[in-house]
Design a protein around this nucleic acid. Structure first.
Lengths: 154, 154
DNA sequence: TTACTTGCAAACCTTTTGCATATTT
DNA sequence: AAATATGCAAAAGGTTTGCAAGTAA
């Protein structure tokens, strides 16, 4: 489990520095976002937020997640299924993703070999690397668990 | 320069096997697609096609590019800018992309080290790999050329 | 009190679909 | 002649925006 205090402070700092306000909605969305499992899609987040505070509009969620992204506490992820997902940014942490095309399971991976290699490639092609997205698609080897997840999703 | 004959034959074969028709529109779209530079966005493709045959609707482009993808002669690519791009699939070839966030330049790369590493990672996480998308974002080191491209794009 | 936020609805953009008409085989 | 394809316009799905009303500082 991660410590969320730095992220909360980072957001407060961002609000302060930009003359933005710490509204009740932003608090509730932050709580839902941080206590969520990772890779939450907008729809899931909206549902979680409305659980705690009904009446929050989807425009607010969109706007707030953009704000969190600008504040550096959230990363936007798109895995090609038309859903935008967000995950908390923990300092010094970077990972990429494996996605099961059958059940939608998302698993994280980190690989220093690939990270380093990318720098070499970027330089050799005349680029300065700023970021990357590396998604590996496949199928779960554990087909029973995969099928169960798939059933649960509908 | 690549030889397009195999791709043309592969499409003909796909049409034949599925009882689909070789229409004038499909020929024109295929020509535009193959003679294009790679990574053509739908909009660009539509413009190129309408140059040769006006009146072609966008629905036809969308439907046809899906058809080409099913026939295995096109790959769909999304780099997160809201545009869907297509590129020809040449046999035995695989590559990923570097994208300049300033000018939009897309450069291809191939790296066997990374390819192999992905297999290891997938297996270690309980996945069987089927495909991947690996995009490296950055900035051109050649800032003059980059600025020129950026200007040209608007 | 002033400036920023929210919620609603409408607008947007890209992609898909229904349907009558046209084209290929 | 039968079946597939096209073009149009409408629909769909996700995201953004204008604006009047609400809220934080």
């Amino acid at each position: 489990m991660q410590n969320h205090t730095p992220l909360r402070e980072q957001l407060s700092e961002h609000l302060r520095q930009n003359g933005l306000k710490n509204t009740r909605q932003r608090q509730v969305i932050l709580d839902a976002f941080l206590s969520s499992e990772r890779h939450m899609a907008i729809e899931e987040l909206l549902a979680a937020v409305q659980n705690r505070m009904s009446g929050v509009g989807h425009a607010t969620i969109y706007r707030t997640m953009k704000l969190f992204t600008e504040a550096g506490i959230a990363h936007e992820r798109r895995f090609g299924d038309g859903q935008t997902r967000y995950e908390p940014v923990f300092e010094g942490e970077h990972h990429d993703h494996l996605i099961c095309e059958k059940c939608g399971l998302i698993v994280e991976f980190e690989d220093q070999l690939i990270e380093d290699r990318q720098e070499v490639i970027a330089a050799s092609k005349g680029f300065r690397l700023t970021s990357h997205q590396h998604d590996i698609f496949g199928h779960c080897l554990d087909t029973a668990a995969c099928a169960a997840r798939k059933r649960k999703r509908r």
